[in-house]
Design a protein around this nucleic acid. Structure first.
Lengths: 348, 348
DNA sequence: CTGAAAGCGCTTACAG
DNA sequence: CTGAAAGCGCTTACAG
């Protein structure tokens, strides 16, 4: 009853070859004769041998591990993005190390340190942001960094982001085209870059159009906050008839308060637009007009970049301070939560 | 521009001690003088040293890695369970290796092989089930197995499950007490053990009460399937007035079809009960009466068991074929989706 | 194509 | 308490 798994030595003995041969058998492109390979494969199967990635990672300086660093992972949007990334990582033959963070100070640093201790080939941040110095240490050591929807820049890291301001602008255009007279902006108080950008776009467009609007911003990006925002915005005398919510979760909360607590009909009396296109936005109860993030594509491109950088490493000496950024355009998804009217085409 | 992170050797040199001393400094309980420790800690901080868990895992035969094996991870219930497990794993000082499976053949095996190749200390299955022989190999090698809501038994593994049949029985009691005359069971066709148990409990109780019921079972456990089930059940002439759905996602679909497509009022004309208590069940649009799984507790207990087993290892020689099982009772959460009536207390 | 040998970064008896 | 040495399971020049 050995406490330790079968090793290359066991396989080598059974197959009557050297340990080096066993290693070559499982190293793509290594020189080995078909016959020895066959013998080794057979022995390996018989013994249930799996190459020890810890040992190989140690020596090859490539673990096949990619850290996924995230908070609020049970949330619809985050879990969707997380699933897409996990899938992409696995498709690339790697495996995901999942590290949960929270809003506490140093949480992102601690997560990144965990990643370092396992020598992950890369770390992908879905939330939070590591201090510049630590990030630099990582990259100097050959770890790749991907920042998804993160505000600050980290030279050498890949930034994957969306044109959020444009979404805010389009929201105004859609609401106006629907005939809304009094607009509102409902947002959380987290002050994330991508959320601030959505707000900025909204304000810009509203200002440019010379129309008035009100706004409420507080709380986290939750359904509950959405309800509170809805209450605050919709129980006023001069209540708005068109609201852009910074996320779908907020929009669901606003819509539910409107319908079930204040008796306001959607979209007849209130048009609503969200952002993220979570699954619930497509459910019959919501039918929410929203902006969709190309989550699968974002995940695929991130992992593609990782592989490209790894290939690069063989060549140059890792100057790699080039600014890498991929910008996606959120796609408007029209559903029933916005009153009928002329819907503007693409662009402004 | 070294491609490799700082090692214990670097720290030892800077601190003027041996590499062994550095190792002891970061090994809890190792004998080291306060002065050397202080020197080493300082040097380590200065250099940004992180113990290489790959190397230590190799030698200590304990990687600190726990594999979480799951499918449909973006689903509300799964993502919640996944988050709870990740949290629990981190609380215990370990880190989660996330492996996504699908319904294809051998997917669970492949996932487990990945776990083996990284020598994870344990693997927790949230979905799927590895072949008996592979599971045994794992456990012989000291890897712990936890099966959450899985049907089959794997000697030596921890089974974490819920008393699903009881939930089915209670659902019938609640619907009858609400005055429902014609019951229905809406379930997916996946035939998972836990879902079959919910069905079994429902049928048993309905039979025992001598009342009639209809049922529909097909598709996956999705909102979409819920809509289809709702259409099938509720467009009949003799449509039911009380439906137990095997999951909340199904229930949401059924409710939406009832309300928005068939104009059936909930709960006046139709009482609905789900299972899982996903976040959406608590949203105003649904207010779904359902059964809650104690997800956090399930996660905590699973990880606790892992730690206990690890402690055990030092002592005995890993006979460990004892049957380990933890059974939780789903908790009824009453909301507005069931018509008012006498609500039975605990038990039948 | 193949094997013996060195080495990745660590831990852990073993002496002192 | 401390260091020198052996060894975890692998990969990879280096000879042959």
């Amino acid at each position: 009853m050995s406490r330790t798994a079968v090793s290359a030595k066991d396989v080598a003995e059974l197959a009557g070859v050297s340990r080096a041969a066993v290693s070559r058998c499982f190293t793509p492109g290594a020189s080995i004769s078909p016959e020895t390979r066959a013998r080794i494969v057979k022995a390996a199967e018989q013994l249930g041998y799996q190459v020890n990635r810890l040992a190989s990672g140690l020596i090859r300086n490539e673990t096949g591990l990619v850290a996924l660093i995230v908070s609020d992972m049970a949330t619809p949007y985050r879990s969707h993005l997380l699933a897409a990334l996990t899938e992409a990582v696995q498709q690339a033959g790697k495996v995901a190390l999942l590290i949960k963070t929270d809003r506490s100070d140093g949480s992102a640093e601690q997560a990144l340190r965990q990643a370092i201790s396992y020598r992950t080939d890369a770390a992908i941040f879905l939330s939070g942001m590591p201090a510049r110095s630590l990030a630099e240490t990582c990259m100097r050591n050959g770890m790749r960094l991907v920042l998804i929807n993160r505000d600050e820049d980290r030279p050498g890291a890949l930034q994957v982001r969306l044109h959020d301001a444009e979404a805010g602008r389009r929201a105004v255009a859609v609401l106006r085209a629907a005939g809304c007279r009094r607009l509102a902006l409902a947002s959380s108080g987290v002050g994330t870059h991508s959320i601030s950008e959505r707000e900025r776009g909204f304000r810009e467009a509203a200002t440019a159009a010379g129309i008035d609007w009100i706004e409420e911003r507080f709380g986290s990006t939750s359904y509950q906050t959405g309800q509170d925002l809805g209450m605050a915005l919709l129980s006023r005398r001069d209540r708005p008839d068109g609201v852009f919510c910074a996320t779908d979760l907020l929009a669901c909360g606003v819509m539910d308060v409107a319908r079930w607590r204040l008796g306001i009909r959607v979209p007849d009396e209130l048009s609503l637009i969200g952002y993220d296109n979570i699954a619930q936005a497509g459910w019959d109860s919501y039918g929410l007009t929203t902006f969709s993030q190309p989550v699968d594509e974002m995940a695929a491109k991130s992992v593609e970049w990782l592989s490209a950088m790894a290939a690069n490493d063989d060549g140059d000496d890792g100057a790699g301070t080039a600014r890498a950024e991929i910008l996606f355009m959120p796609r408007l998804v029209l559903r029933g939560s916005v009153a009928q009217g002329f819907v503007p085409g693409v662009g402004r």
